[in-house]
Design a protein around this nucleic acid. Structure first.
Length: 451
RNA sequence: GCCGCUAUCGUCUAGGGGACUAGGACGCCGCCCUCUCACGGCGGAAACCGGGGUUCGAAUCCCCGUAGCGGUACCA
């Protein structure tokens, strides 16, 4: 089994492209096959090196590797020219100067359901001669058979007038030369496939098994794009998603593996992946579910691992303690700093939280009581010590725990959301905690209003 | 227009003639847990596109319609 993944080098790896890559990879890895990476760069306008580098980078991040390539179609130009010459010599292809407009005009006369047939000329682009009778059947592992009657098919252009090959020729030759057995790609290629099969047949070759994946849509049912938020793997990475979570979620999109399990290791995925189980209808990329899956993976990471990833993500060091007390509260890496940044930086500016929590005398009283209790701690300013000191306060003041701890939370963090209060105080340390409490107290009058 | 593909809760899906009172997950709603936020637990609302067949029996098979998507380039 030889599987071909061939992205077009447009830069960022689209999530749909990532899923195609993943399915190719799972297919190859799960069956002891080889994954061949091609670059579809027969477009003459596009510069590719930087774009290819980005795609490779995204694949690496996801942990998707390949056995051969990446090979550029452009590097195969000599071979393409030979095949072109042979097809023309055999009378299976002919030169034509007919343009798109000419084809449309021809259909005006012959009927729009009738495929264009041209007359051989001395120059122009090379068109493949499609038989008038019969049909080309695309054998598709996820859809069954798609049948295309020849009389509906236009004679496809397979090379430009300057002799450079077009996509439909290049891929077909490459699949043949590389002995590709499986081509997994997006559904947008299904209509191209009969052209490629026709090229293969003109060359006397057997077409590979195709599998056309349903496209990915945004929440509005339209093709997934940047305006839906993250649309590329790179954007997902920057948003703080974990590669293994992205991989797992994408594998779920448009395919079913089990009735009561959604979290799979890569090994399980490879073992269970089956083209026949891939869905045939388009799937909507739901970032909320990705987020959920990501949270599962995140909470499953051991502390050193999570810390290392957060250090890389935030560019900070020495955040181990802050990570330890925040780990169970975040679902994405980017949520760490807003939640715990006050532990190694300034408190958050959140006047609304301030106004909400302080506004009454009892809050100030509670904060003062907390201060006294913390000052009284002798020895290590540990979480246990902090908790022992603060725990009796609610009962003593006859206030709910929230009434006591929220003022302290706001004082040290600047906002109403943080890791657990005892942990936070202990990690912040005696000096900083007291300094922030005092600063807060100093800015308030006795009734809790801004002084 | 023409060619092709597709159609189960809002979303991802299970289902491949009787096991369906249509299952799970995300999201949503309610309750519980609780120092905030998350997590977790319990409960709830929520779907077979429409119409014809085939069959003793259809979410499952066939046809038609409708809708969505893709293609219709000397792009990929």
């Amino acid at each position: 089994m030889r599987v071909r993944f061939a992205p077009s080098p447009t830069g960022a790896l689209h999530i749909g492209g990532a899923r195609t890559a993943l399915f190719n990879w799972l297919l190859a890895r799960g069956n002891g096959g080889k994954l061949v990476l091609r670059i579809e760069d027969t477009d003459r306008e596009r510069s590719t090196d930087e774009n290819v580098a980005q795609i490779l980078d995204a694949l690496e991040w996801l942990g998707i590797d390949w056995d051969e390539g990446p090979i550029s179609q452009r590097s195969l130009e000599q071979r393409h020219r030979e095949v072109l010459a042979q097809l023309e010599a055999d009378g299976l292809a002919y030169r034509s100067t007919a343009t798109g407009d000419d084809v449309r005009a021809w259909k005006e006369v012959n009927g729009s359901a009738r495929g264009f047939r041209g007359e051989p000329e001395a120059e122009g682009a090379l068109r493949l001669r499609v038989p008038d009778e019969g049909e080309t059947v695309v054998r598709d592992a996820v859809r069954g058979e798609a049948r295309f009657a020849h009389r509906h098919l236009d004679d496809p252009v397979i090379a430009r007038a300057d002799g450079t090959p077009l996509y439909n020729l290049a891929v077909a030759i490459d699949d043949l030369d590389e002995g590709i057995t499986h081509v997994v790609r997006g559904e947008d290629h299904l209509s191209n496939t009969p052209k490629q099969v026709l090229v293969l047949e003109a060359l006397g070759a057997e077409p590979p098994i195709y599998a056309h994946l349903p496209l990915l849509h945004g929440p509005d049912g339209k093709k997934l794009s940047k305006r839906h938020g993250a649309a590329s793997v790179q954007e997902l990475r920057d948003a703080g998603y974990l590669p293994e979570a992205v991989l797992n979620y994408i594998a779920l999109l448009g395919a079913g593996y089990d009735t009561d399990q959604e979290i799979f290791t890569v090994g399980e995925l490879q073992e269970r992946f089956d083209l026949a189980r891939v869905s045939r209808s388009p799937a909507v990329f739901d970032e909320r579910k990705l987020r959920h899956v990501n949270g599962l993976y995140l909470r499953n990471l051991d502390l050193p691992d999570l810390t290392a990833r957060l250090e890389r993500f935030t560019g900070r060091e020495g955040i181990a303690q802050a990570v330890a007390i925040s780990a169970e509260k975040i679902q994405r890496l980017d949520e760490f700093e807003p939640l715990a940044g006050f532990l190694f930086g300034d408190p958050v500016e959140d006047p609304k939280a301030f106004a909400k929590v302080f506004g009454k005398a009892e809050s100030v009283e509670a904060l003062k009581a907390c201060r006294e209790a913390l000052v009284a701690i002798e020895g290590e300013f540990s979480q246990d010590a902090v908790e022992s000191a603060l725990a009796p306060i609610p009962e003593r003041l006859e206030l709910g725990a929230g009434k006591v701890y929220q003022p302290l939370r706001v004082a040290i963090s600047g906002t109403t959301i943080s890791p657990g209060i005892f942990e936070s105080v202990a990690v912040l340390g005696r000096d900083l905690t007291l300094a922030r409490v005092d600063s807060t107290l100093g800015s308030l009058s006795a009734d809790g209003l801004p002084a």
